[in-house]
């Protein structure tokens, strides 16, 4: 490791800890959210340094974009009128403070000891994944793990995402985020230019996931960001999750995934045990569905459910 990269890594790590500290200690909520967005951007850089381009792509879209927008929209809603959110009393008493500080210090110490005590070389599954890539439906190891070797996990994860939307909808509608920037012509102009690029890069990321960093998770978050921008600019019509077409698209990832699982089961292999030669096509089909599901999930969680009554007016 040369001196320059060593300095960069030290600086990155220290700024990460410092930013986390400033975020958590920020006097205002708005400041905390803005610092948290900056924290997400730095995280993306760290992922790139750790040879994890898949995660860097997802973090840049999620940590720096999506989470920030969701937090800011919620803050705008919470600060309307009197803020009657039940906030509990701050911790009192030096004994509690001391115990808490010791717990945090203990966590850090134990994690550090565990890390330093690892055998060399540390346990790794790379030796089992990499030789099997030839028979898998994707030549990029991360995609092969996600959609071939451990496809079951991913199937259940998509179900969790849908569950989040169902749970959010069951809590009733919350007002459509309506910040003052709605209707800005400059933003509308940008969205008109950016939207086709965003959809194109989402498609590109899905296709690329088969053999290089990329895939449904990154593509889905890009799609979600594009959809939220469309809503923010006021160009798109309010998202109406009750429409059957939106619901079908929202669930398409889960439908296609379970369909493939049932199909492979009926063909006699194990569930999600792709027949030889069909793996690539099936994975691409699943990934396209996943992209739609992930993208629409976040749009639905951001926009909330329009009131049916509101819609009719």
């Amino acid at each position: 490791m040369s001196g320059v990269t060593l300095a960069l890594d030290l600086l990155l790590g220290l700024s990460l800890v410092w930013l986390a500290w400033r975020t958590l200690a920020s006097p205002t909520l708005f400041g905390a959210i803005v610092l948290f967005i900056a924290f997400g951007l730095l995280m993306a850089l760290v992922w790139a340094r750790l040879d994890a381009p898949d995660i860097a792509l997802a973090e840049a879209a999620v940590g720096a974009g999506l989470t920030g927008v969701l937090l800011l929209a919620a803050l705008a809603d919470l600060q309307q009128g009197d803020n009657l959110l039940p906030v509990r009393e701050p911790l009192r008493g030096w004994l509690l403070q001391l115990i808490l500080a010791l717990c945090a210090l203990g966590l850090f110490t134990l994690l550090t000891l565990a890390l330093l005590g690892l055998p060399s070389p540390p346990p790794s599954l790379a030796g089992q994944v990499l030789p099997r890539l030839d028979g898998a439906g994707a030549s990029h190891p991360v995609t092969a793990v996600l959609l071939d070797f451990r496809a079951w996990d991913t199937l259940l994860e998509i179900a969790v995402l849908l569950l989040a939307v169902v749970a959010a909808w069951s809590l009733g509608s919350h007002p459509h985020p309506n910040p003052r920037i709605v209707g800005s012509e400059v933003l509308q102009g940008l969205v008109r230019v950016l939207l086709p690029f965003a959809v194109l890069s989402a498609g590109y990321l899905v296709w690329r996931g088969g053999f290089a960093p990329g895939g449904a998770f990154q593509a889905g978050t890009v799609l979600a960001a594009a959809g939220i921008l469309l809503l923010l600019s006021g160009l798109g019509r309010p998202f109406n999750g009750r429409h059957w077409l939106w619901r079908a698209l929202l669930a398409s990832g889960l439908f296609i995934f379970t369909g493939v699982a049932l199909g492979t089961l009926l063909l006699g292999g194990g569930a999600l045990d792709y027949p030889a030669g069909l793996g690539y096509g099936l994975i691409l089909a699943i990934e396209l569905g996943l992209t739609l599901t992930i993208g629409l999930t976040f749009i639905a969680l951001y926009a909330g459910e329009q009131d049916a009554a509101e819609e009719r007016e």
């Binding site: 800005s184 400059v186 102009g189 940008l190 950016l194 690029f197």
Partner: peptide, 12 residues
């Protein structure tokens, strides 16, 4: 793209 996005953000 960054110039377009930056300009818009600055204007907003």
């Amino acid at each position: 793209l960054v110039m377009a996005a930056g300009t818009t953000a600055a204007q907003l």
